[in-house]
Amino acid sequence: GEEMDTAEIARQVKEQLIKHNIGQRIFGHYVLGLSQGSVSEILARPKPWNKLTVRGKEPFHKMKQFLSDEQNILALRSIQGR
């Protein structure tokens, strides 16, 4: 696969979550399948791509996919709003 700019992906995700008022817990649960603790760690201190294991890269693939389609963001927003 291609190398990803993990810091940039994390920054964009944080931006979207704040902009749409989506909590990290909801994002972690529905998008990444991770706990809030793992999510906040990944978003606060993303490791460089070449330092990640295959498993460590997974959340970034999912985040990139999440960012690529605004429908994903809107869907999360409606879950959050319940």
Rank of each mutant, 00 (worst) to 15 (best):
residue 60 F to D: 01
residue 5 D to H: 05
residue 65 Q to R: 11
residue 70 E to T: 09
residue 34 L to M: 15
residue 1 G to R: 11
residue 80 Q to H: 10
residue 72 N to P: 04
residue 22 I to E: 02
residue 32 L to N: 02
residue 3 E to T: 11
residue 62 K to H: 05
residue 27 F to A: 00
residue 58 E to A: 08
residue 55 R to H: 15
residue 56 G to L: 10
residue 9 I to N: 03
residue 1 G to W: 08
residue 32 L to S: 01
residue 21 N to D: 12
residue 8 E to R: 08
residue 15 E to H: 15
residue 75 A to N: 15
residue 2 E to T: 09
residue 79 I to M: 14
residue 2 E to L: 07
residue 4 M to P: 05
residue 57 K to L: 06
residue 22 I to V: 10
residue 58 E to M: 08
residue 69 D to N: 12
residue 69 D to Q: 07
residue 44 A to I: 08
residue 65 Q to D: 11
residue 5 D to K: 06
residue 70 E to D: 11
residue 51 K to T: 13
residue 62 K to L: 09
residue 36 Q to Y: 11
residue 33 G to P: 01
residue 72 N to L: 06
residue 45 R to G: 05
residue 81 G to S: 12
residue 19 K to H: 14
residue 8 E to M: 08
residue 43 L to K: 00
residue 59 P to M: 15
residue 77 R to S: 14
residue 82 R to T: 12
residue 67 L to P: 01
residue 52 L to A: 00
residue 11 R to M: 09
residue 41 E to T: 06
residue 42 I to E: 02
residue 14 K to M: 08
residue 33 G to D: 06
residue 62 K to F: 03
residue 75 A to M: 12
residue 35 S to C: 10
residue 52 L to D: 00
residue 62 K to S: 04
residue 53 T to W: 03
residue 5 D to F: 02
residue 53 T to L: 04
residue 22 I to M: 03
residue 44 A to L: 12
residue 62 K to V: 05
residue 27 F to P: 01
residue 45 R to P: 01
residue 52 L to Y: 03
residue 55 R to W: 10
residue 77 R to W: 05
residue 35 S to N: 10
residue 77 R to P: 04
residue 63 M to I: 05
residue 63 M to W: 00
residue 5 D to A: 07
residue 42 I to F: 06
residue 48 P to D: 06
residue 73 I to T: 08
residue 81 G to N: 15
residue 1 G to Q: 11
residue 26 I to K: 08
residue 76 L to K: 01
residue 50 N to Q: 11
residue 9 I to D: 04
residue 25 R to C: 12
residue 68 S to Q: 11
residue 54 V to R: 12
residue 40 S to F: 08
residue 55 R to N: 08
residue 18 I to E: 15
residue 76 L to G: 01
residue 46 P to C: 04
residue 2 E to H: 06
residue 61 H to C: 08
residue 4 M to H: 05
residue 53 T to N: 10
residue 47 K to S: 09
residue 13 V to T: 07
residue 52 L to H: 00
residue 23 G to P: 15
residue 1 G to E: 12
residue 28 G to S: 11
residue 31 V to L: 04
residue 63 M to H: 00
residue 26 I to D: 14
residue 68 S to G: 08
residue 71 Q to N: 10
residue 73 I to C: 09
residue 69 D to H: 07
residue 36 Q to H: 12
residue 78 S to I: 11
residue 78 S to A: 14
residue 74 L to D: 12
residue 70 E to Y: 08
residue 78 S to P: 05
residue 76 L to H: 00
residue 21 N to A: 08
residue 34 L to W: 06
residue 1 G to Y: 15
residue 71 Q to F: 07
residue 77 R to G: 10
residue 77 R to F: 04
residue 26 I to C: 11
residue 77 R to I: 09
residue 65 Q to H: 13
residue 33 G to W: 00
residue 72 N to K: 13
residue 17 L to T: 03
residue 42 I to S: 02
residue 65 Q to Y: 08
residue 82 R to L: 11
residue 33 G to K: 07
residue 73 I to M: 11
residue 81 G to L: 10
residue 56 G to A: 09
residue 26 I to Y: 09
residue 18 I to S: 13
residue 51 K to G: 07
residue 64 K to P: 00
residue 15 E to T: 08
residue 38 S to I: 13
residue 67 L to W: 01
residue 72 N to F: 08
residue 15 E to R: 07
residue 60 F to V: 00
residue 44 A to K: 10
residue 5 D to I: 02
residue 61 H to G: 05
residue 57 K to M: 08
residue 10 A to F: 00
residue 59 P to F: 14
residue 40 S to G: 11
residue 43 L to G: 00
residue 42 I to A: 05
residue 64 K to N: 07
residue 6 T to M: 00
residue 61 H to S: 08
residue 46 P to F: 02
residue 56 G to K: 03
residue 47 K to V: 12
residue 35 S to R: 07
residue 25 R to F: 10
residue 58 E to P: 01
residue 13 V to R: 03
residue 27 F to K: 00
residue 15 E to K: 03
residue 80 Q to G: 11
residue 21 N to Q: 12
residue 66 F to N: 01
residue 50 N to D: 09
residue 51 K to E: 15
residue 54 V to S: 12
residue 24 Q to Y: 12
residue 74 L to H: 13
residue 34 L to D: 06
residue 53 T to M: 04
residue 3 E to S: 09
residue 41 E to P: 02
residue 48 P to V: 05
residue 9 I to W: 01
residue 3 E to I: 10
residue 7 A to H: 13
residue 54 V to T: 14
residue 36 Q to L: 13
residue 80 Q to A: 14
residue 73 I to H: 04
residue 36 Q to P: 15
residue 11 R to C: 05
residue 70 E to L: 05
residue 38 S to W: 06
residue 51 K to A: 13
residue 10 A to H: 00
residue 54 V to P: 14
residue 22 I to R: 00
residue 21 N to R: 09
residue 38 S to Y: 09
residue 64 K to Y: 09
residue 44 A to S: 14
residue 1 G to M: 14
residue 77 R to E: 13
residue 14 K to S: 15
residue 30 Y to W: 07
residue 27 F to L: 04
residue 8 E to D: 12
residue 75 A to K: 15
residue 31 V to A: 03
residue 6 T to A: 02
residue 29 H to T: 12
residue 7 A to R: 10
residue 72 N to H: 11
residue 71 Q to T: 12
residue 81 G to C: 14
residue 38 S to H: 12
residue 75 A to P: 05
residue 76 L to W: 03
residue 73 I to D: 02
residue 32 L to Y: 00
residue 57 K to D: 00
residue 27 F to I: 01
residue 55 R to P: 08
residue 53 T to H: 04
residue 38 S to D: 15
residue 9 I to E: 03
residue 28 G to T: 04
residue 1 G to P: 11
residue 55 R to I: 08
residue 75 A to I: 08
residue 82 R to A: 13
residue 15 E to A: 12
residue 40 S to W: 09
residue 24 Q to M: 12
residue 4 M to E: 07
residue 22 I to Q: 01
residue 53 T to E: 06
residue 32 L to C: 06
residue 42 I to Y: 05
residue 54 V to I: 13
residue 49 W to R: 03
residue 59 P to I: 15
residue 33 G to C: 04
residue 7 A to S: 10
residue 59 P to V: 15
residue 39 V to S: 05
residue 28 G to H: 04
residue 8 E to A: 09
residue 31 V to P: 00
residue 65 Q to W: 07
residue 13 V to P: 03
residue 23 G to L: 10
residue 30 Y to N: 06
